[in-house]
Design a protein around this nucleic acid. Structure first.
Lengths: 152, 152
DNA sequence: TATTGTTATACTCTATAACTATA
DNA sequence: TATAGTTATAGAGTATAACAATA
């Protein structure tokens, strides 16, 4: 008896004309799956990315890491605190510049990074496994072009 | 004289192995451009998407719109307030269910939607114009597959 | 005077519980 | 009792100004 039926389908045809809308929707599902993937390791997307960068680039300063991750320096403090409290990284005063900290992964941090990366690889396989190798290559190529184009 | 040179390049090679990392970086540049595109219209991404949906689906209820946009009902209230205050839409009590509001775009809202959509089309051309038609089609197809796959 | 890490702060986005008015 | 819209609130995420220690 409702003239406004409750489950009338909503048309998003106009939005679907935009590639950006599809990017957002696809990225939303990827993000949701990644968050679940990292939860057992007590890592968030940003703490996982940071941990990987510290493992791969031992000894760098906070400001350098923050720049690479495009995170504002003040916001990076809590992220580093979180990883340090979890025993995954250490802050070491840089001997030649006592204002700066050099960031290093602990042995535990290296192990955690390796295990989490295995889980993230499984996540990537789950999410992008629907694509053929050719599709996946073309997706990466297209994404790269979009990013480079914007930097001009 | 720094043994930790300030601009030592940071390797993100490990992260670049992940398609999701490229998705995030590409989406970041798209988002930044779209935010600038919508600023002259006093619209945010979410208010623009909502306006388009209301123009295309006049008379639907808030809850239906919120579901379609995957926004929690409480958070949708401020979005609708914003569009209503700007004179772009109206809330009309649904006569057959006086708890509900039917959402309608005003004439001004329809015009604003049309102009903003022209700007968003230009934005899409700027951002995705680096891709060939074939690349763009394959990107959309791949994104669709990722989204559908996740819904299973 | 400038820079590193930090604190404080504010604004957005997102998620949940609970209220009101209607059904 | 259940639902539509709302309020309040809390947690992330993000951005800027300003401070102490050091250069």
């Amino acid at each position: 008896m409702t003239t406004l039926p409750r489950h009338k389908p909503v048309s998003d045809a106009s939005l679907r004309a935009f590639a950006g809308y599809h990017m957002k929707r696809a990225f939303n599902v990827i993000k949701a799956d990644l968050i679940e993937t990292l939860k057992p390791f007590d890592l968030r997307m940003v703490t996982y990315s940071t941990l990987v960068l510290i493992v791969d680039n031992p000894g760098l300063r906070q400001a350098q890491m923050a720049d690479a991750l495009m995170i504002e320096r003040p916001n990076f403090v809590a992220i580093i605190d979180e990883l340090e409290t979890a025993g995954l990284i250490t802050r070491q005063r840089a001997p030649e510049d006592r204002r700066a900290y050099a960031l290093m992964a602990t042995l535990s941090g290296q192990a955690q990074c390796k295990w989490a990366t295995e889980a993230v690889n499984a996540h990537e396989h789950r999410v992008f496994g629907v694509l053929s190798d050719a599709e996946r290559r073309l997706l990466l190529s297209a994404l790269g072009k979009i990013e480079i184009n914007a930097a001009q």
